[in-house]
Amino acid sequence: MKKILLALAGALCSTVFAVGQYDGIYQNPLDNNYYLSVHTNGTAMIVTGYSSMPTSGLGVTMTGVGTIRPNALDYFDLLNGLINGNAATVSGNYAFRGCQVTANIVFTASNATVTFPIVQQSALASSQGFNCRALFPINAIVFPKIF
């Protein structure tokens, strides 16, 4: 009975901890404080960008908890889409939902080359004079894989 349970546990763990060929953490060479976390499941891909920015008196209120004024704000950008071979196309929100972007990513064993062919302003960004296109260079960014 123990052997059956161990075999079953091993089979489940291999499914739960499955890692795609390009899954990992990539660091932005233009901003050492910005990372991409890449995860795949078959042809589905999710890419999350993580960073932190200093704040100056920004108050964050949580219902039932109170307000805190952090000296830095950690944030993430979430994109999802499909991968085919070593090329992926993912779309989603950037900059606190101010921008809608589509990114093309080409992977090698050691890096991810990212371009942003589509960058659109949300109504929120437009109403506040935020320039989404200024966030993304015209040329590709090569993110080295660090984990």
Rank of each mutant, 00 (worst) to 15 (best):
M1V: 10
K3N: 11
I4L: 12
L5M: 09
A7V: 03
L8Y: 09
A9H: 10
A9G: 09
A11I: 00
A11W: 12
A11S: 09
L12I: 02
L12Y: 06
C13V: 02
C13H: 04
C13I: 01
C13K: 05
T15F: 02
F17Y: 07
A18E: 09
V19P: 15
V19R: 14
V19Y: 10
Q21R: 14
I25C: 06
Y26T: 02
Q27P: 04
Q27M: 14
P29A: 11
L30F: 14
L30N: 12
L30R: 07
D31V: 15
N33W: 02
N33S: 12
Y34K: 00
Y34M: 05
Y35S: 04
L36F: 15
V38W: 13
T40K: 08
T40H: 07
N41M: 00
G42F: 01
G42V: 00
A44I: 00
M45C: 12
V47F: 04
T48N: 09
T48E: 13
G49Y: 04
S51M: 07
S51Y: 10
T55I: 05
S56H: 05
S56L: 13
G57A: 10
L58Y: 03
T61I: 04
M62T: 13
V65M: 11
G66Y: 02
G66I: 02
R69A: 12
P70V: 01
P70C: 04
N71Y: 01
N71I: 06
A72T: 15
L73R: 04
L73T: 07
Y75R: 01
Y75P: 15
D77G: 08
L78K: 05
G81D: 03
G81T: 00
I83T: 05
N84C: 13
T89Q: 09
V90Y: 03
V90F: 09
G92N: 01
N93S: 14
N93K: 01
N93E: 05
F96S: 04
C99K: 07
V101K: 03
T102R: 03
A103F: 03
N104G: 14
N104S: 14
N104V: 14
N104E: 09
I105A: 12
I105W: 03
V106E: 05
V106C: 06
F107N: 06
T108Y: 14
T108V: 10
T108P: 07
A109W: 03
N111P: 00
A112H: 05
A112D: 05
T113G: 01
T113K: 09
T113W: 08
T115P: 08
P117T: 01
I118G: 06
V119Q: 14
A123C: 02
S126D: 14
S127Y: 03
Q128N: 12
G129S: 12
G129Y: 07
G129K: 06
G129A: 13
F130K: 00
L135K: 10
F136D: 08
N139I: 11
A140R: 04
I141V: 15
I141A: 07
V142I: 15
P144N: 06
F147H: 11
